[in-house]
Write a protein that binds this DNA or RNA. Structure first.
Lengths: 229, 229
DNA sequence: TAGTGGTCTAGACCACGGA
DNA sequence: CCGTGGTCTAGACCACTAA
């Protein structure tokens, strides 16, 4: 009948959210907390470490643990594969390859990704449908210097994301979200009006600083990305 | 000279990203790993637990640990206070209250937040500037049933976010991102054209299921939210 | 039912960094 | 300097669940 780290964490969390522990105030040290909860120091340590990971407290050797003044607000988003995303909302997923070509990197992409001018890129445009309605427009560049196999793979049946995830390891991913206005191309593919506001995710994937792929995923009008914490 | 959990984690991570451990393959159990790394089982456990938290492996009792087939792609975003966000990019921050009124909740908000029809809401519209250029338009509703003090507080000098973070505890936050088209009001306040695509964050904060505040934060044209992992 | 991860313990040593 | 958190250990019991 010992106190678990979950109980310790929940109790401290309660004291913080209910204002018993004011922002900026200092918590007892681990030894004292262990004694008062009647558990081992390692148990308190795990509870406190998770609270620190969650951004609720700040810990420093010798200085002790304090409740953060401005609780670090951080949100975690799942970035699912399109197919899973579509199927999880109960729709039928369909994929189509719109175009495929190979060309040297444009100046814009070279600057953005840090590519050599000699590098060749595989450029794919794909559509993802939910119940036969346009769901996502995918504009992707794959660095053939990093992924030579991509040149011979047939992307007409399998989406590049599915293939890349299984074939190519990566070490670093950068993601950004923004709003863009639909031009004629987007309007046609996503079945919306020119000028509509669309939600776009841009993602750059690297393997040890070498760019592997850059993609723009543009969602149909009205899409939301949601999370809670 | 023992093996640390960081070393164990880094070594397994390397095997995954370099393809030595294929997606879906099973890892040795903790006892065996501990033996092969020459450390205690608890050390291996911590390394594996963190890999699981990071979405790289899946663990199940009796079944063992496997490399995820589709590495769970999850991104963590910091949700900073506007003032910090502006100042961190080296600009001067300025705040202004645009309007303030108190009214019963509209049907739309009642449905969205799960409010009682008798609840009164404090409705604030605020502007946040960076170097005197519009940066963010804030449209906020505060539930006076949950936060009576808000009724008498003077929001003409201090932004509601700063005040709420310090005054009101919360237990649950829901965030969503989307793209919207600027109407005449947005165009005027954010100094952009009608029809421009704007990036908007919506956030609902609750304390034990009671809605505390709902806010729409609309950024100036061209804003991006970025992260890496 | 047996194997695996989940957790707790009591103790130890150490690194960091405030006073 | 020396208090605090960071980490490791060897062992133990337990909860879950696949076989």
């Amino acid at each position: 009948m010992s106190t678990t780290y979950r109980e310790v964490k929940a109790d401290i969390l309660r004291q913080i959210t209910q204002g018993e522990l004011a922002p900026g105030s200092i918590l007892p040290n681990e030894v004292d907390l262990a004694a008062s909860y009647g558990c081992a120091r390692a148990t308190v340590n795990r509870a406190m470490r998770e609270l620190a990971d969650d951004g609720l407290i700040e810990r420093r050797r010798k200085a002790g643990s304090r409740v953060r003044r401005n609780p670090l607000r951080q949100a975690k988003f799942n970035i699912p594969l399109v197919q899973q995303e579509v199927e999880e909302q109960g729709s039928v997923y369909r994929y189509a390859l719109v175009s495929r070509d190979i060309a040297p990197a444009s100046d814009r992409l070279r600057a953005r990704l840090g590519l050599q001018s000699s590098d060749r890129l595989l450029h794919l445009i794909c559509m993802h449908y939910a119940d036969d309605a346009p769901y996502q427009y995918e504009n992707r560049w794959i660095n053939l210097a990093a992924t030579p196999d991509a040149e011979t793979f047939d992307f007409s049946q399998t989406g590049p994301n599915e293939w890349l995830v299984k074939q190519v390891p990566f070490t670093d991913v950068q993601i950004s979200f923004r709003a863009i206005q639909a031009d004629a191309v987007y309007a046609e593919h996503l079945d919306c009006a020119r000028g509509d506001a669309l939600f776009q995710v841009e993602r750059t994937t690297r393997q040890d600083d070498e760019p592997v792929t850059f993609v723009q995923l543009t969602y149909r009008q009205g899409h939301r990305l949601t999370t809670r914490y």
